[in-house]
Design a protein around this nucleic acid. Structure first.
Length: 277
DNA sequence: TGCCAGGCTTCAC
DNA sequence: GTGAAGCATGGC
């Protein structure tokens, strides 16, 4: 067990921020996460104190990096335009959001699944794939399943894959799994590229366009200049900024602010305000 | 029950 | 290069 004090860190906000799909609430103040072939339980002891149920070694070598704990998010928040009421509200509402550094393969497949799907539907498709093709993880007398590797996914036929709620995306996943598994396509090359080259590299993949490439760049490669525009962000840019949002003000890290926008836009608080307008 | 979801490919122009 | 059609399926 590792207990740490953390600022700008909130489990619920991270779990519900739409960047990860296997972090879930299990009780009041407790969240459960599967990543890197491991299970992790995290408890909020107070607003700024957290218990990670793992070894000190795993915390230092995996989870500290995963949750981007060495970054001071107050610097980003303080840079926000004081006159930008929407963004000020958004950073206040989602104060504890972190941009995760997730595994490249899992993030790539997860966001291919995500297109034109709701977050609950994405989650259930990922759980279904993991339970059917992933390796078991034994944790406190229970069994969970890791996200399947390229080889594990490549074994299954297109027909088998299509049983997991993937819809028309099954063929994208089938092709990429086979190309990566055979060594024909080296996805890990993306890790050594700058944002522009990583974007070109990712959009060359069948089934990955502008938005998904930006999500992978932001949520796995940690290219925080990436600014994914989905239906929610598109609405915000129209409704709140009259399609005139000055992204250049946040040159180099706009993706982080995008995430506060996304989280706030989907909240009940924001929809209440919209109704009263 | 119908509508919408962290969009993409394809094809016409 | 831009714009529109078509897309599979689950969750609310």
């Amino acid at each position: 067990m590792v207990t740490v004090k953390l600022n700008d860190f909130n489990l619920e906000q991270i779990a519900d921020s739409g960047q990860c799909f296997r972090m879930n609430k299990i009780s009041d103040n407790e969240y459960f996460l599967i990543a890197f072939g491991k299970c992790l339980k995290i408890s909020a002891l107070s607003k700024d104190e957290f218990a990670f149920d793992c070894s000190k070694k795993d915390f230092d070598t995996i989870w500290k990096d995963y949750f981007d704990l060495d970054t001071d998010y107050s610097l980003y928040k303080n840079s926000v335009d004081k006159n930008d009421i929407f963004l000020q509200e958004a950073i206040k509402y989602g104060y504890g959001i972190r941009i995760l550094r997730q595994e490249l393969w899992e993030t790539t497949i997860s966001f291919i699944i995500s297109q034109r799907k709701s977050i609950p539907a994405i989650k259930s498709a990922i759980e279904s794939l993991s339970a059917s093709f992933g390796s078991p993880i034994y944790y406190k007398d229970e069994v969970f399943y890791a996200f399947p590797t390229p080889k594990q996914l490549a074994i299954s036929s297109l027909e088998e894959l299509s049983k997991h709620g993937l819809g028309y995306r099954d063929k994208y996943i089938h092709q990429l799994s086979n190309n990566v598994s055979s060594g024909e396509f080296d996805l890990d090359k993306a890790k050594n590229l700058n944002y522009d080259d990583a974007f070109k590299f990712l959009t060359s993949i069948y089934g990955i366009g502008t938005k998904i490439a930006n999500c992978i760049a932001l949520f796995s490669l940690h290219k925080i200049e990436a600014f994914p525009i989905d239906v929610w962000i598109k609405r915000i840019l129209e409704d709140e900024y009259n399609n005139n949002f000055d992204i250049s003000r946040y040159d180099g890290y706009a993706g982080i602010l995008q995430q506060y926008m996304f989280y706030y836009a989907r909240s009940r608080e924001y929809s209440k305000i919209q109704k009263n307008k």
